[in-house]
């Protein structure tokens, strides 16, 4: 037995390529099987006619892609982009200062970071339901305001765009804070001191040194919020009362209630292509900005 093991290790030792592949193959197999294969199946579906009772029939058609460019769907698409962009912006504005403070908080760092990721201990679904209890007409916010006499009848919070945005921001904020924190935390403090000696006041120091050096974390945070926000459907479903449909809801509906799998697949692929395009453009612009140094 030992002889076999040793010979196998010796064989690997002399073949660096084989060693790399032996480390990579489990992960690659997993992704091939559960990501790439379903993706290919979906792509095939998106090009086939719809089956009468769900599923698809044999054949080839571009009808589903054409249909997506009807006005009603484009409206959903642009609203989804707008909502995701707004959500990303709010997360950035809320998250950056938090990450900044935590990165500078010395021995409290680990505790504060622990608190940031604490919500992940419960499922997103449960937390979203909790927000319903907070925001509904008989919920905590309205009853407190009523008790205080600040309002005479409940204000509508739940099932408004505001509720959806609140839920999205709440859900994705940690994804913004974590990467920004990581890049601020490893920022060399002597660079800030150097900037100060060179005459930079705090505001100039932030724009010229701190922000550019935390840009990788900022970009990562924006992508980590923007992309899942684009595909989200749970929040708008539960907190928006399905009034505010997002692309995620559309796709989900096509697969579930509407039983139009090919159209759902086509919509998914279009969104995927758009996200890819947006991300690539973003990274290109960022790299060019970094190269220019200004």
């Amino acid at each position: 037995m030992a002889g076999v093991r040793e010979r196998a290790l010796a064989w690997l030792y002399h073949r660096p390529t084989a060693k790399v592949w032996s480390l990579l193959s489990p992960g690659i197999l997993w992704l091939l099987l559960f990501f790439l294969v379903p993706l290919l199946i979906m792509f095939a579906y998106s090009l086939m006619p719809r089956g009468t009772y769900g599923g698809v029939e044999a054949g080839f058609t571009l009808e589903h892609y054409r249909r997506f460019f009807e006005k009603i769907y484009l409206a959903i698409l642009s609203r989804t982009f707008f909502v995701s962009l707004l959500c990303t912006t709010i997360c950035l504005l809320l998250g950056y200062p938090v990450a900044y403070v935590i990165a500078r908080s010395g021995k409290w760092k680990s505790l504060l970071m622990f608190l940031v990721v604490l919500p992940f201990w419960t499922s997103f679904l449960v937390r979203t339901f909790a927000m319903i209890f907070l925001m509904r007409d008989t919920g905590l916010i309205n009853s407190v305001l009523l008790k205080l006499g600040l309002i005479s009848h409940p204000i509508a919070i739940l099932y408004t765009p505001f509720a959806v945005m609140t839920g999205l921001v709440y859900g994705f904020l940690p994804f913004m804070i974590l990467p920004i924190y990581a890049s601020l935390e490893k920022l060399d403090l002597s660079l800030l001191e150097a900037a100060e000696v060179l005459g930079a006041r705090p505001v100039a120091r932030f724009w010229r040194v701190t922000l550019p050096l935390s840009l990788p974390g900022l970009v990562a945070g924006c992508l980590l919020v923007f992309i899942p926000a684009l595909g989200s459907f749970l929040t708008s479903d539960l907190l928006g009362g399905a009034k505010e449909m997002m692309i995620g809801n559309l796709v989900q509906n096509q697969f579930a209630s509407a039983r139009n799998w090919p159209f759902g697949s086509a919509a998914s692929f279009i969104v995927m292509a758009l996200v890819l395009l947006a991300v690539v453009t973003y990274l290109r612009v960022k790299d060019r900005a970094a190269d220019g140094g200004r």
């Binding site: 002597s190 660079l191 150097a194 060179l198 006041r201």
Partner: peptide
Amino acid sequence: PYERRLSMVFQNYALFPHLSVERNVAF
């Protein structure tokens, strides 16, 4: 420090990694 108008060379140099040599010096 920014009100004192003196210059300093740091132990680890503290050059701004995102700026070129000339932009470091121009800072």
